[in-house]
Structures are given as structure tokens and as C-alpha cells.
Design a protein around this nucleic acid. Structure first.
Length: 512
RNA sequence: GGCGCCAUACCCAAGUGGUCAAGGGAGAGGUUUGCAAAACCUCCAUUCCCCGGUUCGAAUCCGGGUGGCGCCUCCA
């Protein structure tokens, strides 16, 4: 890589040059879902960010082993399953299937490995055994606790001081308030496994240490996840792994910001098909999106109405570490921006043609040169942004500059026929955007069809009805019956269907 | 009570020591059009929450204040 790749490291609170342990190869472990319910758009923000991150690293010739786990046995799953009167493991299985369905729908690549807690029990027990052996854990009444005071470094990642914590959970047999469970003694009705300490199940944090260890070894290059996991989850992982192995657990910590619901705004709205009136929602609704706050919007619901790439653009249009506010305008805005990119690419394609004669080239002059300049500079501009702590929002800014330059050139009548020399570099730039950020991966036609399929049902029309009306309107226009033509157009416009009269006929779009 | 992050125009959002403060949306005017829509052009922050300080020079660094958010309980 020509320029260093720079990444913010939560552990040091600074942006650092990224150097993997083994040159050219990156081991990445990302905390995935606890599968007790459907994936909401806060979860999928993390999924999209890391998917895109891996895509980019690979594009830049790093070899990446991407591991994203499933926590398929835990308190919450057991609790929810009990409420629903079902088997916890069956519930987890169902939500894993749903998650896979949602990620596929979102257009994400599968991670290289997706370990599950229930398939990592031997490794978890081995790790716990090691910790007891080394004096960092103790068994008490069928459970095993991590001995926090035995690890002086505890708190380094999150900046917490053990004696300042508001510890609540008393726990049976715990020696220190900050100690946390590695192994939980079996309770009736809960899934359990045999162990040297009696039947039970893993605690919350040990699983990730074990899964990272079994898939990537004692030291991983980058550990990712939501910023809300820093404490206690990641802090505890560090202690478990470093006390067991005596090696640095993760060299870089990469945390994404939360999806938030701003104060006094409507959540979802047209996005969810929920037509509750706007206005102030209960205080509990604002802040971080989460199931327990009752403000979660499930990803599958949104994907029924918006193309996956609109979600992707929504996520990538803000730096991954910033909080991302979600409201009713968010997706329409992102979809509009995405459509702008597609339309610019279409305009570039339409300019294909012969090498222009000199007089035409001269008349295209400055505008054509501008496109050429931006298109050729695009790769280095994109790399500069993404190499700088994965600044996807900055990278997108460059794409929009190019889009405007293309549209400007294509407005030029002569360019419409003869944009020749600028087309290839412009299309190459958009192709690079597809490869790295996963946007504009469809043909323009596919994209328009997807929009129509997802948006039209809410507008009270079928494609056939719209086409029928447009035929009537074409007839009226041919007869210069402008009032009839305008009446049809107004009727469609009322239902958010925009009609555009082109030289070769009328097109229509769903207004975003 | 403890730890940490953030504060850029009407809205969203890049930029984090040095030419004019990206980009998108909204708004105003114009080109185009049968009229529109879309697209394009022009305008839209002499200024980056406030107050001090460092510097030849700060939105960018330091100190204080105010406001918002995350974590300390399950959390992407």
C-alpha cells in the first residue's frame, strides 16, 4: 500500500497507522448478534460498516480473515424463550436464520467464519480451566467467576477504575463486586453442558474470547463492534484472554457509533408504514435505538420499502464512529442521493459514441475536461478518504462531485451524442465505488424496478395502470390536448409519481 | 457519583494548524420545456456552541463554561 492505512484505536483514543501482525494479512473479529429477536437497523449499521470495511481492505490487497460470531445462548434468549414458551436453542436457531436472510437481503457478503457459542463449549471450558490454573478465576457453588483484582490492567481499554464502578449484581459466591461469571451454574429449564465445575452454561464474555482464540489465535489484529460494548464486554474479553494466554488480545479496537433517535422526532413514520401522527414521543423513545427502548425498527420491515443500497448509503454517508440519527426523512433522503448517482451513471453511459470531431471536442471543452479530471482523480481521492480512518462520507462527497460534472456535460446537447473520451474513466470511477462501498451494484434498470416494486404498492397504483395512463397522455399530447395531458400528469403527481417528458417519450419515476 | 465521545449553514454531513470551510437536501432566481419534471447555472456559514490561551497563523491545539450523546444493567 502506498499510503499507510490509518485507523482510530479505541484503546489509545488516537488514529494510528495500521500494521497487522502478519504483513499483508488481517485477522478481524467482530461481535455479532445475540439472537433473541430480529435484527434492527442499529444492528445492521454495524454489519454494513464491517462488511464494507472488509470489502475495502480486500480491494486494497490485504488478505482478511473475517470472523463474526453468534451468541446463541444467553440470559436474554432464555428469558424471551420462556415468555414465549419455546426452547431457547430453537429460538436462537430461528433468529440466526432470520439474520442470515436479512443480511443477504442487505447485500452483505458472508464472513469467513461465523462461530456460535453452542459450538464452542470445549474451547470455552479449556479457557476457563486455564484461568483457574493461573489464579485468575475461582469456582463457587457450581459457577466460575473471573477474579478481577487478580488483573491489575483491568479497565485499561475503557478507562474504568474498578472501585468507581456501580456494581450491582451480587452473584452467588462472588468475592469482589466487579467479578463476572465465566460459567453459570445450571438452573432448571435452562440449556446446560457438563463441565468440571458442574453442569451449566458459559457467561456472556468468555464466549467471544474463546471464539476469537479458536478462529484467529491468541492475538487478533482488529476487534470490532458497537461502542456500547466497550464496557464491560470488551474490557472483560481483554482480561480473560490476556490472563489466559499472556499475549495482547487485540491490537486495534474499532467501534462503531450508535444509531440514535433524535429528540422530538417521529421514528420510522413512512419508513415503517406506521402512520401515527408526529409530535413528541415518550422520553424513552429517544436516544440509542434498542429493543428495550421500544424504538427499534427492524431491518426486514425497512427493506420491504427501500432498496438495500439506500440503507447502505444511509449508513456510509456518516463517519462510522459518529452517532447516526435516524428519523422519517433519513431513508427518503438517502434514496434520493442514491438515485442521483445512478442517474449520473446513466447519463455517462448515454454519452457513449464516436470520438468527437475537433470542433465538437472544442465546444465540449471545459466541461469535458472537468469530468475527465475528476474521474481520473477519483481512485486516489477515494483511497485517501478511506485510508484515513475509513472515511466513507468523505469518499462519497467525491462521487457526488463527479456526478454533477457528468450531468453538466451531458446537458450539453452535442455531448449527448458524443461524450466519447470521458465515458470510460467516468464509468470506471463508478465501478470502483461499487467494488469498494457496495453502491451502484445494479443496472439502472434493475434499480428503477426495485424502487417501483418497493415504493409503488404504497402509492395506490400498479405499473400497468401508470403505463396505461401514460399511453392516454401520449395520445393527448400528440393531439396537443394539453389540458387532458396535464390532468393525467397531475393525477399521477398527486400520488407521488413523477412524469418526465423526454425526446423519445415519457418516463416515470416514483417521487422519493 | 465515575469513565468516555461529540458540538460545522434551515436540515443531514466532510474537513481537525496555513490558498475560496467538501458533498447532499430544503429555499430564492435563471437556462431548458407546450407547461412541467429531471438536469444544469447563480445565490444561500468572512465563519465553524461560548469565553480565555498557545501560535506569524486555529473550526482545527490547550484550559474553562454550556449543551447533546454513549457506557458503568442487556445491548451493534
Amino acid at each position: 500500500m502506498a499510503t499507510p492505512f490509518r485507523l482510530y484505536n479505541t484503546r489509545t483514543r488516537t488514529v494510528e497507522d495500521f500494521e497487522p501482525l502478519v504483513p499483508g494479512h488481517v485477522g478481524l473479529y467482530v461481535c455479532g448478534m445475540t439472537v433473541y429477536d430480529d435484527c434492527h437497523i442499529g444492528h445492521s449499521r454495524a454489519m454494513v460498516i464491517f462488511d464494507t470495511f472488509v470489502r475495502y481492505l480486500r480491494h486494497r490487497s490485504w488478505s482478511v480473515t473475517f470472523v463474526r460470531n453468534f451468541t446463541d445462548v444467553d440470559d436474554k434468549i432464555i428469558e424471551r424463550a420462556a415468555e414465549a414458551g419455546e426452547d431457547p436453542l430453537a429460538r436462537a436457531e430461528r433468529y440466526i436464520a432470520n439474520f442470515h436472510r436479512d443480511m443477504r437481503e442487505l447485500g452483505l457478503d458472508d464472513p469467513d467464519l461465523e462461530p456460535r457459542v453452542t459450538a464452542t463449549i470445549p474451547e470455552i471450558q479449556a479457557l476457563i480451566g486455564k484461568l483457574i490454573e493461573r489464579g485468575h478465576a475461582y469456582a463457587a457453588e457450581g459457577s466460575v467467576w473471573f477474579d478481577v483484582p487478580s488483573h491489575p490492567e483491568y479497565g485499561a481499554l475503557s478507562g474504568q477504575q474498578v472501585d468507581k464502578l456501580r456494581s450491582k449484581d451480587p452473584g452467588v459466591g462472588k468475592r469482589h463486586a466487579a467479578d463476572f461469571a465465566l460459567w453459570k451454574a445450571h438452573k432448571p429449564g435452562e440449556p446446560s453442558w457438563e463441565s468440571p465445575w458442574g453442569p451449566g452454561r458459559p457467561g456472556w464474555h468468555i464466549e467471544c474470547s474463546a471464539m476469537a482464540w479458536s478462529t484467529l489465535g491468541e492475538t487478533i489484529d482488529i476487534h470490532g463492534g458497537g461502542i456500547d460494548l466497550v464496557f464491560p464486554h470488551h474490557e472483560n474479553e481483554v482480561s480473560q484472554s490476556e490472563c489466559a494466554h499472556g499475549q495482547t488480545y487485540a491490537r486495534y479496537w474499532m467501534h462503531n457509533g450508535m444509531l440514535t433517535v433524535p429528540t422530538g422526532r417521529k421514528v420510522g413514520g413512512r419508513a415503517t408504514g406506521d402512520d401515527t401522527p408526529g409530535g413528541d414521543e415518550p422520553a424513552a423513545m429517544k436516544g440509542k435505538m434498542g429493543k428495550s427502548k421500544g424504538n427499534a425498527v427492524n431491518i426486514d420491515v425497512l427493506l420491504r420499502e427501500y432498496p438495500a443500497e439506500a440503507l447502505r448509503l444511509f449508513y456510509l454517508d456518516t463517519h462510522y464512529r459518529s452517532p447516526l440519527p435516524f428519523d422519517a426523512d433519513a431513508l427518503p433522503t438517502s434514496l434520493g442521493k442514491l438515485a442521483r448517482l445512478y442517474e449520473a451513471r446513466e447519463a455517462a453511459e448515454a454519452m457513449g459514441g464516436e470520438e468527437p470531431p475537433d470542433d465538437v471536442a472544442r465546444s465540449l471543452g471545459a466541461d469535458a475536461m472537468r469530468v475527465l479530471e475528476l474521474a481520473r482523480a477519483f481512485p486516489s481521492a477515494l483511497y485517501a478518504s478511506l485510508d484515513d480512518d475509513f472515511n466513507t462520507a468523505g469518499a462519497l462527497g467525491h462521487a457526488f462531485e463527479l456526478a454533477r460534472a457528468i450531468n453538466r456535460l451531458s446537458n450539453h446537447k452535442k455531448a449527448n451524442q458524443r461524450g466519447g473520451p470521458v465515458v470510460a474513466p467516468a464509468l470506471a470511477a463508478f465501478s470502483l465505488l461499487s467494488k469498494t462501498l457496495g453502491l451502484m451494484t445494479l443496472s439502472t434498470e434493475e434499480f428503477q424496478l426495485e424502487i417501483k416494486a418497493k415504493r409503488l404498492p404504497r402509492l395506490g397504483f400498479t405499473s400497468e395502470e401508470v403505463e396505461g395512463l401514460l399511453q392516454q397522455r401520449a395520445q393527448a399530447r400528440a393531439n396537443k390536448d394539453w389540458s387532458r395531458a396535464d390532468q393525467i400528469r397531475d393525477q399521477l403527481e398527486e400520488h407521488s409519481i413523477a412524469v418526465m417528458d423526454r425526446e423519445h417519450g415519457s418516463e416515470w419515476r416514483v417521487r422519493l
